[in-house]
């Protein structure tokens, strides 16, 4: 659905942030981009809805180079949730209307309930929401554009454990409904809980099997010595249908 093919990103001052990364996000799965800080996870994610453009390589959406697509249309089909909840001034209703100005209260209520928030929140000032509520509102806002892929950049990093679990469960539900989820995390426990597929990035490239195993830790390294082996990072189940990029080092399908 969304594929990154040998993408490189070079900054204006010549620093290369990504060195030819291959990865893919498939419908109905949660793909986790894992790796230490500064590995290029967020940069890769931002390529997905063209907030960044690669200096080399191609990003494809349904097989088409995203450079050939209308970026505004692409961004509505490939939604994004940021690390820190971005709350605009005004009520929750006004925040949701930023995504769909014509949505009526019924639609807004439905999308709020989908992310575990009540319709009663519509008139609440968005600034008054808790961190967890705000992040869920941001997910609801992204869902209003009816995306096929949702890019989530460490969406739980500022949340308490209960809210973290709630957002993770929501991501799994959305994947079960057919969305392709691409989730950035460097929380190894979360990677284990959440992922169907994991891509480990180290210093701007996809880690090889050994590096991936070392990063993910012994408990999770069962499949890393053979990165193409189908394993489920959550339970070790063999569920080999997960994808087109399964044979690549550092990328481990479920």
């Amino acid at each position: 659905m969304l594929a990154f093919e040998a993408v490189r990103v070079t900054t204006d001052d010549g620093a290369e942030l990504l060195h030819g990364v291959d990865a893919a996000v498939c419908p109905g799965t949660v793909t986790v981009l894992a790796g230490p800080s500064g590995a290029g996870k967020s940069t890769l994610l931002r390529l997905g809805n063209r907030l960044e453009v690669p200096s080399h390589g191609v990003v494809r959406f349904h097989g088409r180079d995203v450079a050939d697509l209308d970026p505004l249309e692409l961004r509505r089909r490939v939604g994004m949730v940021f690390q820190k909840p971005v709350v605009f001034a005004g009520t929750v209703r006004e925040n949701l209307h930023v995504a769909d100005a014509h949505a009526d209260d019924l639609s807004l209520g439905r999308v709020l309930e989908r992310v575990g928030l009540g319709v009663a929140l519509l008139d609440r000032q968005a600034d008054d929401l808790s961190g967890g509520e705000a992040q869920r509102m941001c997910i609801a806002r992204a869902l209003l554009t009816r995306p096929e892929v949702l890019l989530m950049d460490e969406p739980t990093s500022s949340l308490d454990p209960a809210n973290r679990r709630a957002v993770e469960a929501l991501a799994r539900e959305l994947a079960a409904e057919g969305l392709g989820i691409c989730w950035v995390s460097h929380d190894l426990d979360q990677v284990r809980r959440l992922t169907d597929r994991v891509v480990v990035l180290v210093e701007g490239r996809v880690a090889d099997a050994h590096e991936a195993a070392r990063y993910l830790g012994a408990g999770d390294a069962r499949g890393a010595d053979d990165a193409g082996t189908a394993r489920d990072a959550r339970g070790g189940d063999d569920a080999g249908a997960a994808g087109d990029a399964g044979g690549r080092a550092g990328e481990r399908p479920a």
Binding site: N49, L72, R75, R76, G79, M80, F82, V86, V98, R141
Partner: peptide
Amino acid sequence: RDEVEARLALGHA
């Protein structure tokens, strides 16, 4: 910047 990019990410011109 985060707010502007959030609007862009929602498909705003």
